[in-house]
């Protein structure tokens, strides 16, 4: 079974979010980059589990410049067999999806894994776009995946519950919580990752259709109004008369 996992870097979850250059750029000063948690904990680890039980290979694919390589090496340390980096600007979701779809057209895979979204741009877009560009079935926000022969059974999150679905390979999946548990790379994995193949290929020409022109921060809270713990009932009067939410 050939498994492809789309990996993107994202600022560490504890990063302070601020902006530079007149609020047009994310301020990267002091920001540590990690593998986007949904790509790592859920997509990559589930792909590795399937490989371990059913056999096959796990390849990661990333669209971006050389500054992505530390996170790609981490994915290899966790257990991916090899990695592909498409050397192109990850300008927007469709541009990323087109690069990956072009690669897959020439290198077929049975399952293409994505995380449910990146924790920086929160778009939840790339998986569905790859599926459309390749005319493949797409299961979004999946929390469970089992493979039996050519058929996969999945659970996906829906409004107020879960849906159990079936599809045939090849297909695209975006992975949400529940899919797998995080793995910490061991020393052997970290050593092995240094020599695993990381293929860099040049991207195709794609135009970008969206561009972030500015950022802004959430408006500051006016401050917390404290209520006496001995007489907490005042809370409901405030929520009713002042905040008007109950």
């Amino acid at each position: 079974m050939k498994l492809l996992v789309c990996i993107s870097k994202a600022p560490d979850t504890t990063s302070k979010v601020s902006f530079a250059e007149n609020n047009t750029k994310f301020n990267e000063a002091g920001v540590q980059y990690i593998i986007n948690p949904y790509d790592e904990w859920y997509a990559l680890v589930r792909a590795l589990e399937l490989k371990e039980t059913l056999g096959g290979t796990v390849t990661t694919i990333t669209v971006g410049k050389a500054d992505n390589e530390p996170t790609i090496r981490k994915a290899l340390a966790i257990g991916a067999d090899d990695a592909v980096r498409i050397d192109a600007e990850a300008s927007d979701a469709l541009a990323v999806a087109k690069q990956i779809a072009d690669y897959v057209k020439n290198n077929s895979y049975d399952i293409i894994f994505c995380g449910k979204e990146t924790i920086d741009y929160n778009g939840s877009q790339v998986g569905g776009m790859i599926a459309e560009l390749l005319d493949l079935p797409y299961v979004s926000l999946a929390s469970k995946l089992d493979v039996n022969g050519n058929t996969a059974t999945l659970e996906r999150d829906i409004q107020g519950g879960k849906e159990v679905v079936e599809t045939n390979m090849p297909f695209v999946i975006s992975c949400a919580k529940g899919m797998a548990e995080a793995r910490i790379p061991n020393m052997r994995g970290i050593m092995a990752a240094r020599t695993k193949p990381l293929q860099v290929i040049s991207g195709s020409e794609v135009s970008k259709l969206t561009e972030i022109v500015a950022y802004s921060l959430l408006p500051e809270k006016a401050g917390c109004k404290f209520i006496d713990a001995e007489n907490p009932g005042e809370l409901f009067q405030l929520l009713h008369n002042e905040a008007k939410v109950i």
Binding site: L94, V126, G128, M129, E132, I158, L209
Partner: peptide, 22 residues
């Protein structure tokens, strides 16, 4: 929501449309 996240990217990719998600 759960459905929009699943369908909007497909539609955008097909129509070569810029997508603002969220």
């Amino acid at each position: 929501d759960f459905s929009g996240k699943a369908i909007a990217p497909r539609v955008a990719a097909k129509l070569q449309a810029g997508l603002v998600a969220g």
